[in-house]
Amino acid sequence: MYERFTRSARQAVVWAEEAGRREGADHIESGHVLLGAVHVERSVAARALARLGIEPDSLAECVRSLKTDSLDADALAGIGVDLEAVRAQVEATFGAGALDAATRPRRTKGHVPFDPAAKKMLELALREAIRFRSKGIDTGHLLLAAARLDGAAAQKALAWFGHDRKAIEDAVVAAWADAGE
């Protein structure tokens, strides 16, 4: 399937893989792929989101807050729990980075696999490309796929901004019309 990806779509996937590795995630998630698509400069996905008035940074923030295992320092501070103090205490006993590594196997290098939702997202992007009779799979198709990914973080993050699937599709089609990738 990758051979059908445009240059931007490949960059998006590479970005997603790097982000996952950087976070020490045990899987590349749909949110990583969505953010990858948006982070490729002037990509169809980036331009479509700009049309919808969605800032890449707010989307990233939204994806982060949807992660099931995220520790929100601000939220904890709101109830009087100082996450940094807890972290320092835990690291004194268990070593540096212990608190962040506690939930997942440590994976600092090598291949990070895609989780089922992220795989599904790539498949749906292919389907979108077929539906639009496009020559290749670009970041616009990835964005359309994210909007169809019911229950996954990528879809929830998009839904958070209040645009339905149709609005996202219109924005992608308009971005395609602007200029090709």
């Binding site: 929100d72 709101g78 729990v81 807890v86 506690a102």
Partner: peptide, 20 residues
């Protein structure tokens, strides 16, 4: 939203401490 966010983070924190 604030309260629920805090509850969720507490749960995550508890899970991690438990594992350690």
């Amino acid at each position: 939203a604030e309260g629920l966010h805090a509850v969720r983070s507490l749960r995550v924190l508890a899970d991690r401490l438990e594992a350690l």
